[in-house]
Design a protein around this nucleic acid. Structure first.
Lengths: 243, 243
DNA sequence: TAGTGGTCTAGACCACAGA
DNA sequence: CTGTGGTCTAGACCACTAA
């Protein structure tokens, strides 16, 4: 029983992890190729591939064709954050979800937004500001711009009852997007909305979602920004993730 | 050519995505099972499985044995954040990296930390505070506690020249951990370290790394916390990710 | 050019959980 | 109990890229 037969790719992966953690394979080391490892572990190459690929995805290994597989020098931690719908997030905490529409208007957007959306700077875009609350305590401010050029049918939707957050998530397919995290001091307005002191540190998420196949349905306006949202969370809020 | 033969799992996945984005399959819909889809697409079931599994991992599909595969109601966005070594992050921006050790002492830790580490509350833990800078501008404060019970050899290491961040990443294998993101107002001390105003909103990352197979090398003290670090970034800092 | 990872296929068995 | 996804296997060919 010198080499207990590993049954599935997760077991194989664990064993590989062990070799890394135990420093039998040290950072930078070139490890044997898939085929050899598969033989050594007594599994099919596909199984070994899955184990190695998964480790590479988590950043523990670097793989390159012909160059082989190496233990990563900087085990770049990849944290996978789940970004739930705000309502779900609040209800999962057993709080009563509340939603208030504060502002909904077609406006000329600041240049920052129009360049981000890649639309003419005098475009009229839909601006929606709303407040989500948990047990009647303000939870997060949602400040959103919607690209009516790409989503013209949204001009008539009212977000009085249902948040744009939910409506868009469930009704607007997007192919990709980018997101950034930061912090901001509460402005006077924001402070009064959240019932907190001016200047309090707020956790901020800013997200832009895009669609490669958007455009009004005719052209190939690839990579169209659909909406940009800035979420300002109440003080003390933290987003959690596992490594 | 009604059904162009899809060659690889990524093509298959794209076609599946299209059916979702085009709302041919709407949120909540039950879609055909793997076997049927494989026949329809003219590929092996394993290939279809890979495509479906990948979509499920990105949150676009919900899969359950026997219950089948459904288009996710809440396409929970999963953002994968890369957490690089601070030095790499700064150098990648073409800035000169600087490091200053501000504090390094074995102390009694606050209870918050000792309970987190699951060590006796009077344990003496290594406390390291340091400052990372970019082109001589303060970039981030690193406030770290190290579990000397699990990592006794660290008692003698000096972090005067090399940051604990790097040393630990490259020398201390960890199997998992958790991380949280938030915001904090700069305290008087923090403000003076970062050369900013008191109260400025700072983006904060707090991370605890653990090891299942730690312990001093003898026992099976599973799930031992190795170190906890709180990073306070200069105002304006943002972490970016793709969706 | 040759070695390595990336992927496909067909068939098989298993594990889980809904009906 | 039975349908579904989860996985394994062996062999094959392909794609990339370092040498």
């Amino acid at each position: 029983m010198s080499k207990p037969v590993r049954r599935n790719w997760q077991d194989v992966m664990s064993e590989l992890e062990q070799r890394i953690y135990s420093r039998q394979w040290r950072p930078g080391d070139l490890i044997p190729n898939e085929a050899d490892l598969a033989v050594e572990f007594g599994c099919a190459r596909v199984t070994m591939n899955r184990a190695l690929r998964t480790l590479a995805e988590t950043g523990l290994l670097d793989r390159r064709r012909k160059a082989g597989t190496r233990v990563a020098l900087n085990p770049i931690s990849k944290a996978t954050l789940q970004i739930p719908v705000i309502r779900s997030e609040i209800e999962a905490l057993d709080h009563r979800y509340g939603y208030h529409l504060l502002h909904e208007k077609i406006e000329h957007a600041p240049e920052l937004i129009t360049t981000h959306f890649d639309v003419p700077s005098d475009s009229r875009l839909l601006h929606v500001i709303s407040l989500h609350s948990a047990d009647d305590t303000p939870y997060v401010i949602e400040d959103r711009w919607i690209n009516l050029v790409a989503l013209p049918h949204l001009a008539d939707v009212s977000f009085a009852a249902l948040s744009a957050n939910e409506w868009l998530l469930q009704n607007t397919p997007f192919t990709h997007g980018d997101i950034s995290f930061g912090a901001a001091n509460a402005s006077t307005e924001e402070a009064s909305m959240l019932h907190i002191k001016v200047g309090a540190a707020l956790f901020m998420i800013e997200r832009t979602t895009r669609d490669r196949n958007a455009g009004n349905g005719d052209a190939k306006s690839s990579d169209t920004a659909l909406t940009n949202v800035r979420l300002l969370y109440r003080p003390g809020y933290q987003a959690h993730a596992k490594l």
